Amino acid sequence: MGQRRTGLFEKLLSRGTRAFWSRAANAAGTTDLSVLRSQRTEARILRQKLDELTYTADSRLAWPRIGLSNFPKPAGTDWSWRPQLWRGALPFKGISGVESKTMLGDEVTIFHDCQISELTLRQLRNTRQEDLAPFGLRMDVFQFDGSFLSLVLALPQLSCEGLTRRHLLRMEAIVETETPLEIFARINVRHGPNTEQIVRELPLDDGKVMVEFDLAYTKLNEKRVESMWIDLIFEGPQMNQVTIRDVTFSRNPRAEL
């Protein structure tokens, strides 16, 4: 009962507030200037709060829902993962003049060797019908005086548990570029003092990308696997905009030959 009374009171109060501001707006042309000045200040404060509410509500109510980690996986998958950057909101919306080794959350780091950074990064909310990830990452590169630009994704420790040379690691992504661009994905598996690497070029024909890394072609010491990470390497990124709407990983044992 208490909750219903509170709800009714809030509705009546909200209705009264809307009526007050409606009358104030209609009378603004003839309102005394001292009163109008006070109303303008209150209206600006109210608009700021309403904008904050609308932004948060749009973000939470839009599809796909925040925190969503589901995506299609191959049969036999024994581990899968979507990085946090594509699942949940970062504490900041964007960064300009991005310095090397800047972290985006706990799992993604940007690396470059520019003397002057003309690189901006912004997390965006995915709202397209075909999107499964709640968020995407947009990177704008203007002049680029460096020799390399890469985005490093640190895979969680679970990806290393039980890892063998029989495993295939699949990476799927949705990537949009303003102009044609070469992007390479390099998996790094650290085992003891050594690191195994496999490089694949991302086929960007239709925006949806899938590459597989076959660990059978490495000298992986299965008993000493310590960590894994992925480098996304952008070749000649200047004067381009790259939007990564989703990135997912899955691991499954390769069929016996």
Rank of each mutant, 00 (worst) to 15 (best):
Q197V: 14
R190Q: 15
T6L: 14
L202W: 04
G88P: 03
A185E: 11
V247T: 08
P180E: 07
I244T: 04
L204R: 01
R5Y: 00
T179D: 15
F111N: 04
G207M: 10
E235Q: 11
A89L: 13
L137Y: 10
L215D: 07
K223H: 11
E201L: 11
P193T: 01
P74T: 07
E176N: 01
N252V: 04
L215Y: 00
W79Y: 03
S147E: 14
L257N: 14
A24V: 04
Q241T: 15
A133F: 05
F111R: 14
L13P: 00
R251T: 02
T177N: 09
A255Y: 00
I110F: 05
V98Y: 07
A216L: 05
E161A: 13
G16A: 15
E161P: 03
T248I: 03
L204N: 04
P237D: 15
I187G: 00
W229H: 15
A25H: 11
E42V: 09
Q143R: 06
R138E: 10
E161I: 12
R128H: 06
T56V: 07
L181A: 05
C160F: 06
Q39S: 04
L46W: 04
L163E: 03
V175H: 05
E182I: 13
A75F: 02
W229M: 12
S80G: 04
T195D: 04
L46H: 12
S100P: 01
L90D: 10
V152E: 10
W63P: 04
L13G: 10
R44L: 14
A89Q: 08
D214A: 09
R47Y: 00
L232F: 12
R15C: 12
F135D: 07
Q84F: 07
S227K: 02
T31R: 03
N252L: 08
P83S: 04
G29H: 05
E52Q: 10
R87I: 02
E256L: 13
L90Q: 13
S96I: 02
L149G: 09
T30C: 05
T177R: 09
S96L: 07
A75R: 09
Q48N: 10
T248H: 07
R125E: 06
E196D: 15
L163S: 06
A57V: 10
P91S: 06
W229Y: 15
Y55L: 11
I66A: 00
D58E: 12
D145W: 08
F234M: 13
Q157V: 15
H112I: 00
A154E: 04
W86R: 03
A75S: 03
M1S: 01
I110L: 11
K101S: 10
E107C: 01
E201P: 11
K208A: 06
T164E: 14
L257I: 14
S34D: 14
R254T: 03
R200C: 14
S117N: 00
D214C: 06
A57R: 14
S150E: 15
P193F: 08
L90F: 02
T102H: 11
D131T: 05
A24Y: 10
N26E: 15
Q157W: 06
G94N: 13
T120H: 01
T17G: 05
D131A: 03
R5P: 01
I230C: 03
W21D: 08
M228S: 00
V211I: 13
R224W: 04
L90Y: 09
V152A: 02
A75I: 01
S250T: 09
I233S: 14
F213A: 07
D58Y: 00
G7L: 12
